[in-house]
């Protein structure tokens, strides 16, 4: 298919019909195909348990940490098949995954968090330049660079997790629900910074979000995943105007359909 080849050539990431098994039995995603064009921001949307995190873990190689594996399909990064490449090698190739739930190194300072992510080969001066750049994007972190990270606020920890990923100098930055549990003003602050990073550094971004409304404001395309399959793919405009999306994810619909109930109970949990 010449058409597909053309899409792949312009993609930094091209994931084709990938299936993932956990513990050799649990089929978590069932043939997911996702393309991330170079320099673009793409969103993966979908409700809880749809397979979004699994998709990111398949790309970053972190599946192995959870006894998961790719049982079918292939993942190409800049045209190279990385399906069998070790997770730490993928970081070196330019893929960095900010995992769900703000995993900062709690007993390290923000500054040490950034140092920890530096490749062993990165010189001290380059590292310092990188750090200053990150503190420029996130001035809140600069203020608290020497305090213990475990005591940062949720928003600051999310910023630190993103900053720490930037130290690895990624060309593809993947974020798993960065807005989770954050106040709306923080979400928009973080999303603005993501957009800036995307524009200024030319980093391609793959953003997983349940907060579809916020995500569709900054990405150019989105994929909707349900039950381990891509059920919709389109530009942000197309998705925003789609009636199903409006009903299920943008809070436009009424009634007691399954998805809304699920979202509601989950939201309640964040607040408690």
């Amino acid at each position: 298919m010449p058409m597909q080849e053309k899409v792949e050539a312009q993609s930094i990431l091209s994931m084709n019909s990938v299936e993932v098994l956990y513990d050799n039995v649990m089929l978590a995603i069932k043939g997911v195909s996702v393309q991330v064009p170079k320099g673009k921001m793409i969103a993966l949307l979908g409700s809880n348990g749809a397979g979004k995190s699994t998709t990111l873990k398949a790309i970053s190689g972190l599946l192995k940490a959870e006894r998961g594996r790719i049982s079918r399909g292939e993942i190409k990064f800049n045209g190279t098949d990385i399906t069998e490449v070790l997770a730490q090698k993928r970081v070196g190739m330019g893929i960095c995954h900010v995992v769900e739930g703000r995993h900062v190194f709690e007993h390290l300072t923000p500054d040490e968090n950034l140092t920890a992510a530096a490749p062993l080969g990165m010189s001290r001066s380059v590292l310092n330049v990188e750090k200053e750049k990150i503190y420029n994007y996130f001035p809140r972190l600069a203020e608290r660079r020497n305090s213990q990270s475990g005591y940062l606020s949720g928003g600051e920890q999310q910023m630190l997790a993103i900053g720490r990923a930037l130290v690895t100098q990624p060309s593809l930055l993947m974020l798993d629900e960065p807005s989770l549990g954050l106040a709306p003003f923080l979400v928009s602050e973080i999303f603005d910074i993501l957009q800036k990073i995307n524009q200024e550094e030319g980093v391609s971004v793959l953003l997983v979000e349940q907060n579809a409304l916020a995500a569709l404001e900054i990405v150019s395309e989105g994929y909707l995943i349900e039950n381990g399959r891509v059920v919709m793919h389109g530009t942000a405009e197309e998705l925003k105007s789609n009636s199903d999306i409006q009903e299920f994810y943008l809070g436009g619909g009424e009634g007691t359909d399954f998805h809304n109930v699920k979202h509601y109970s989950r939201r309640k949990r964040w607040l408690s």
Partner: peptide
Amino acid sequence: TRTGIKLRAIADDYMASWSVGIS
């Protein structure tokens, strides 16, 4: 040192360590 900080990072969080390429 950088290696020492990476070791402390591992002590804190395996998943986060893997995610930034720490072995």
